[in-house]
Write a protein that binds this DNA or RNA. Structure first.
Length: 487
RNA sequence: GGCGCCAUCGUCAAGCGGUUAAGACACCGCCCUUUCACGGCGGGUUCGCGGGUUCGAGUCCCGCUGGCGUCACCA
């Protein structure tokens, strides 16, 4: 049996859509699970769409997703070059060959309207010039450069191909146009280059999106014309997005971030994105959801692939992301979180690992961090209402006493550590005869101006440090004393 | 519109003729609790519709409906 070889063949747009990334992932996982090769090939035959540095961008993105090609523009391999624009001579020779074989012909008009009367004598577009006397025609056409080479489709009958996911798919040949194989500028079209390269590069399994199902018969006809072995097709259902109005459509900008890189910038770990995306359209048929790349390779199989489109669910991504953070050590988390902390003062900067330990269980992406820690750097404006909490029996009035006493306790603490704070605060609560919740609530509000904080009061005190903590408590006291008493 | 593909909870999905139709996310409720988070427990009319086939259909067949794709010198 032939060694399995799959490929990922993006056009260099400088943008890695999640759907593309998933296609690459599946092609990679399948190849690796079969101990085969995974090839990266750049399909840059559309000069108008060329984006500078896009190849490097694609390679970097794949690398960050841990998808490593065995062959590619910068990975070596025996079947290069792996950039289509560098293979023009190859395509040309195969196109000429096809003409000799009688499966293609030269033509120079885009459509019948493009042709003037003179042109029409030599045939215009699509099936006008295909059956004219070839020698006479070609001499004239070649003289009239630039021309195009079109594939000569059978007018009757049907073409059937096998798809692993969909079984046999049959399309009537009458549906197929005499498509362009070689463009005026000498570049091949996707539908041509693709077939030539997949054959030359010995690709055994073509894994790509469903949008290519309808053009596959054209490819099959090409393989047959050359007498080449037809590879196995696997057409993947698209990744969809859900809009606010509930409608579902192919994932696009209006659904939020859609590229791998957008997601990374938002602070999702690359391994989280691959893990999540792997499960979008593929099921391991077990209850496992968290997978390392090695596990994915081990568990991957074509049977788990889904035929129907999958909606990208940010909720689930968030959950999965949180699971990864929770599983990380405080040190590792602090490392990946580092650039999201922003500018920290000396005190906080020295407590990053500790801060991270509090943060990692309550965020779903790293970009949530700035909002979570802002109050540590800048005290938000106080609001009396915040001091009122029914469940904990706190009011703006009784807060005054609590804060006053707390300040005294805190001022006497010289060893400002979490343990020490814990001990002293506990003692203070016991002594006061009040509920833990009552005291903590008042303190939290005074210290943070928020009902919700990452970590409890003890942790905030520690993070803020002695001076700032006491300062904030005093300010809160002043604030409360200036509130007109309720009647 | 022609052609093609698809159709199980809101979402990802298991299921491959006989199941109380898994599990996860989200949601809701309760518990725990130093707020939030974390954690624990529990909850929900899910097989698009209509015909067949069969003792028996989410599973097979047909039709319908709906969604998506495709009809480029884009990939």
């Amino acid at each position: 049996m032939n060694k399995v070889r799959t490929r990922f063949a993006p056009s260099p747009t400088g943008y890695m859509h999640i759907g593309n990334l998933r296609t690459a992932l599946y092609a990679y996982l399948f190849a690796k699970s079969q101990h085969g090769d995974f090839i990266l090939r750049i399909e840059d035959t559309d000069r108008a769409r060329y984006v500078a540095d896009a190849v490097e961008f694609i390679e970097k993105t794949l690398a960050s997703a841990k998808i490593i090609p065995d062959e590619g523009p910068h990975n070596g391999g025996d079947f290069g070059p792996y950039v289509q624009s560098e293979r023009m001579k190859i395509y040309k020779s195969y196109a000429e060959k096809l003409i000799e074989l009688g499966y293609a012909y030269r033509c120079f008009c885009n459509n019948d309207d493009d042709c003037n009367d003179d042109d029409k004598k030599f045939g215009g577009y699509n099936r006008t010039c295909r059956d004219l006397d070839r020698e006479e025609l070609e001499a004239n056409i070649v003289a009239r450069k630039p021309y195009v080479i079109r594939q000569k489709m059978p007018l009757t009958g049907e073409t059937t191909f096998f798809d692993v996911l969909h079984g046999n798919i049959t399309i009537a040949n009458s549906e197929l146009e005499d498509q362009v194989l070689l463009k005026r500028d000498g570049m091949p079209t996707y539908n041509f280059a693709n077939v030539i390269d997949d054959h030359l590069m010995k690709v055994t399994h073509i894994i790509r999106g469903t949008e290519f199902i309808t053009s596959t018969p054209k490819h099959v006809l090409l393989y047959e014309a050359f007498g080449w072995e037809i590879p196995t097709f696997i057409h993947l259902a698209p990744v969809m997005g859900k809009s606010a109005d509930g409608t579902v459509s192919k994932l696009s900008k209006r659904h939020g971030a859609t590229s791998f890189n957008d997601l990374v910038e938002m602070g999702y770990l690359p391994e989280v994105i691959t893990n999540y995306v792997a499960l979008l359209g593929w099921s391991p048929k077990s209850n496992q959801e968290i997978f390392s790349m090695d596990e994915l390779i081990e568990k991957f199989s074509l049977e788990g692939l889904s035929k129907s489109p999958a909606v990208f669910d940010y909720n689930k991504l968030d959950w999965m992301s949180g699971e990864y953070f929770k599983a990380m050590s405080d040190e590792d988390f602090a490392k990946v979180a580092d650039k999201f902390f922003g500018e920290l003062d000396e005190n906080l900067a020295s407590k990053k690992v500790y801060l991270g330990s509090l943060l990692k269980t309550r965020i779903s992406k790293l970009s949530d961090i700035p909002a979570q820690i802002k109050f540590l750097q800048v005290m938000p404006p106080l609001d009396v209402e915040l001091f009122t909490n029914k469940r904990n029996k706190v009011t703006a009035e009784n807060s005054v006493g609590i804060l006053t006493d707390a300040i005294k306790v805190l001022e006497n603490i010289s060893d400002w550590t979490v343990d020490e704070l814990h001990e002293k605060i506990n003692a203070f609560v016991t002594e006061s005869g009040l509920k833990m919740g009552t005291i903590m609530w008042a303190l939290r509000i005074a210290l943070s101006g928020q009902k919700v904080t990452p970590g409890g009061v003890i942790e905030i005190l520690y993070l803020l440090g002695k001076n700032i903590s006491i300062e904030r408590l005093n300010s809160a006291l002043i604030f409360l004393s200036n509130i007109p008493k309720k009647i």
